[in-house]
Design a protein around this nucleic acid. Sequence first.
DNA 1: CCCGCGGCTGGTCACGCGTATAGCCTGCTG
DNA 2: CAGCAGGCTATACGCGTGACCAGCCGCGGG
Lengths: 227, 227
Amino acid sequence: MRTGEVRDAHRVSDLTARARIRDAAIHCFAEEGFDAPFRRIAARAGVSPGLITHHFGSKAALHAACDTEVLHRYRQGKQDSIAHPSAHLLQGLTTPGASATTLVYILRSVHAGGPSARDFLDRLIDDARAVMADSVASGLVRPSRDEEARLRHLIHQAIGEMLVRFVTMPGLTPEEFVAALQSRQADSILPTLELLTEGLFADRQLLDDYLAYRDGCAAPAALEAPA
Amino acid sequence: MRTGEVRDAHRVSDLTARARIRDAAIHCFAEEGFDAPFRRIAARAGVSPGLITHHFGSKAALHAACDTEVLHRYRQGKQDSIAHPSAHLLQGLTTPGASATTLVYILRSVHAGGPSARDFLDRLIDDARAVMADSVASGLVRPSRDEEARLRHLIHQAIGEMLVRFVTMPGLTPEEFVAALQSRQADSILPTLELLTEGLFADRQLLDDYLAYRDGCAAPAALEAPA
DNA sequence: CCCGCGGCTGGTCACGCGTATAGCCTGCTG
DNA sequence: CAGCAGGCTATACGCGTGACCAGCCGCGGG
């Protein structure tokens, strides 16, 4: 009986047990972080804990395999979302057209830090670069004096804000978190739009001062302390 | 001999060994996160691991004691920085006038998430509220249609960006991180100023559309999908 | 029909953690 | 000077983890 069940799941979910373990690990990592124990991943995949070591060798290798798979799914979801470009720029910049699990997994990767976080962020920046270029070309957004720095800054801001929201409401499933995130985004959409269209400062003095300092590169006192 | 050393340290660093343990814990937590083991904290404080339990009862209690102490130091540093208001609004909003250890500890608290993160963020927002109100009153920044939401949004963005920078360069001491952070901030100061003075969007259409939708509250189609 | 072989199991290992406890050693007190 | 109190140490325990390994079992070829 058990063997039959497993073999059925084998056929239904994926071809190999390795893939089943990987998917279970992705879900567990998204739900409870990368400290999720082997035993729980194994239980979710319907296999024994030893099999994980047998297939992946170590936890780091499993983690890496999950990273590449999630990156693959993210890219796929991105292409799918390009197919029907209904979302406007804001959501296109911040939220990728991916499933809740994928998004939360990426968020957890950034949260865990290290080279993996860097990879995901670089990928997000790469994908946003094209969108940003199009938006500038179509006249929707103003050009920047340093497009690359602005892009990095915007992505880091957006992901960072999502990360803060994420860590301040723990214990939620990925689906619950994404729902809560969108609800909160609705609350802060007004100040976001305000800042993105009108800016924060009432006059151009600080920017012009900095530009003058930058071009002239001779009067740093104008920036630091006018006194 | 050893006893003499301890008693000297006793006199020099602080009155009570409890405070010495607390300070060592703050440094360890800032350097390697809240997973720092008792034994390392004890070694840093120059005491035995058992003494930590003896004084604080549990790790959660030690954590809480460190939180209150760091919050206290943060407030003190804030008051000190108010004394000499040389920094301009940007740094005033993002970086508090605190030591590297204090800043990194707060960042780690936010990173760890949970109620503690919420407390720190709320405190940061509370402190920024007065600065923001002053800036609006003095005409430096534009008023918002929802000051509180904009404040939350800005703080979450700023802290989130610092958090992303923090997790993407692991293995640094607090001092090294703060130095690197200021260096990176210099790189992204131009897009920041651009965004804060000129905004991102070239025209007011999206904001006006949203405001019309908000006031009328009857044409949600205008926001979601024009098709 | 029998054999071998590879996927898979579950029991076991060593490790590091926070915590609990028994005892030492010092300095104060009568 | 003797006794005591308490800060402090050393040691041990229970728990949960990732990793390891000997053996079972069903499928495919001789």
